[in-house]
Design a protein around this nucleic acid. Structure first.
Lengths: 140, 140
DNA sequence: CCGCATCCTAGGCGATACTG
DNA sequence: CAGTATCGCCTAGGATGCGG
């Protein structure tokens, strides 16, 4: 017979959860959602390579994605979010016309490392996952 | 003057990205999206405490979330996804009426650890993030 | 070159009601 | 109790065109 978790255990979990909040824009949830979305992780990995102009960045991301290019709207949106949370630095040169470039902050580089770690973890388990999927799809 | 990344660097990045694919249901993207969604991480953390019946799980998740309870539909959905990918084990007892319970697989426990690590990383930087947000919102 | 406004679609999620 | 079906909302994200 398997034991079900008791109320005390539940209280512990509740406390732990409260710690990082569940509000939609709370940093924890916001950042996790960021890493989970369509483009942000890709953007972080590219930015890790150096400093990029908006247009260049867009071009490279389009080349990397086997499916489709990122739309300009979304790229701007994602960069803004990353900038707002302190992961990306946006610099505007004094030139005419002014040039805009983006690069990671120190914290942004850290986030990128975390993302990379996660990616590697999943990659190592990809065979297991694929196998589980086939078993599941075949039986039930 | 800042140097822009060269084409070679881009090629390297491309190779790295190809490695984990960008297809929507590719394991890497699927799992990252999972951790980023509204409920999955919470579910993993609760399941880490032991084995749960569907109804119990729903109740506890509702209590943990400061906002709202999870809908039955979504809970079933998330559990199915986790089960399909090999992170969760679903057991049906031979009783009348049959009882359904869920627990983590070994790989599921691993994923939960990864999620927890990420959560902790972000939590430690929450002050920086909040500060960055205020600066951003105030100026621009 | 960069960003914004507008419009549109797909999918995540909640609520409810119904089967075994 | 567990799961499904249907509905409707809201948001992520793509396409296009305009303005600085």
């Amino acid at each position: 017979m398997s034991e079900m978790p008791n109320p005390q255990r539940i209280a512990e979990l509740a406390a732990e959860m409260e710690a990082h909040g569940t509000a939609r824009d709370a940093p924890v949830r916001a950042v996790m959602a960021l890493l989970g979305d369509r483009w942000t992780t890709l953007i972080l990995l590219v930015l890790e390579a150096g400093e990029w102009r908006h247009a260049e960045l867009k071009r490279v991301l389009g080349r990397l994605s086997s499916e489709q290019a990122i739309s300009q709207r979304v790229l701007t949106l994602k960069l803004r979010t990353l900038e707002r949370d302190g992961f990306v630095l946006r610099a505007i040169s004094a030139d005419i016309p002014p040039k805009v470039s983006y690069k990671l902050t120190a914290m942004g580089a850290g986030l990128c490392s975390e993302a990379r770690r996660l990616i590697m973890w999943v990659n190592e388990r990809e065979p297991q996952i694929e196998e589980a999927r086939q078993t599941f799809d075949a039986s039930d």
